[in-house]
Computed example of a mutant assay.
Amino acid sequence: MRYRSKAAARGSPAWMTTFADLMAVLVVFFVMLYTMSTIDNERYQKLAESLRQVLGPSVVQEDTPQAAPTVVDLEGPAPTPEQEVHDDLPPADPEHTDTAEILEALQEALAEELAAGDVELGEGEDGVLLRFPEQAAFALGSKEISEPFVPVLDRVAGVLADTPGLIRVSGHTDDIPIRSDRFRSNFELSTARAISVVHILKDAGITPERLIAQGHGETRPLAPNETPEQRARNRRVDVHLVDAAD
Rank of each mutant, 00 (worst) to 15 (best):
H199R: 13
P151Q: 01
G165E: 11
E112M: 04
R179T: 15
V156I: 15
E134R: 05
G124A: 04
I195A: 14
D162G: 15
S185K: 03
L140E: 15
L189P: 02
E125D: 11
G141Q: 08
L153V: 03
G127E: 01
T191E: 12
E188P: 10
G171Q: 07
R193H: 04
E112N: 12
I178L: 10
F187G: 12
S180C: 10
G127Q: 04
L106Y: 02
I145M: 02
D175R: 06
E123V: 06
K202H: 12
Q135R: 13
S185T: 11
R155P: 03
R179H: 10
A109F: 08
L110M: 06
S190F: 08
V152W: 04
E112A: 12
S142T: 08
L121N: 02
V156C: 14
K143Y: 00
R168W: 13
H199S: 12
T191N: 12
E108R: 15
T163Y: 06
V197I: 00
F187I: 10
F138D: 01
R182K: 14
V197S: 05
I176L: 15
L140R: 12
I195S: 12
F149Q: 06
T173F: 09
G165L: 12
V169F: 11
S190W: 07
R155D: 13
A115K: 07
L189V: 03
A137P: 04
A136S: 11
G127D: 06
L160D: 01
K143H: 10
I176F: 13
G122H: 01
A161G: 12
V152E: 07
F187L: 14
R193Q: 03
I195P: 05
E134L: 08
T191Y: 11
A161M: 14
E123H: 04
A192M: 05
T191V: 10
R155Y: 11
S190I: 05
R179A: 13
S142G: 07
R193E: 02
G141E: 14
L114N: 09
L130N: 05
L189N: 01
F138G: 00
I195R: 08
N186Y: 08
S196R: 05
I145F: 04
R184M: 09
A192T: 06
L140V: 11
V159Y: 06
A136Q: 00
K202E: 15
V119K: 04
A115P: 02
E108M: 14
D174I: 11
V128E: 00
I200Y: 11
R179Q: 12
E113D: 14
S196W: 01
L201G: 05
D174W: 11
F138W: 00
T173Y: 09
D181M: 11
N186G: 14
D203H: 11
A109Y: 10
P164M: 13
E147P: 15
G124P: 04
A137D: 03
G127N: 01
E123Q: 10
F149G: 09
K202P: 08
T163K: 05
S180P: 02
S170N: 09
G171S: 07
H172G: 01
E112Q: 09
V152N: 12
E123A: 00
P133V: 06
R168M: 13
G122S: 05
L121E: 04
G165S: 13
G117Y: 01
E134W: 01
V159I: 03
A194L: 06
E147Y: 10
I178W: 00
G165T: 13
P151A: 07
H199M: 12
I145Y: 03
N186F: 07
K202W: 12
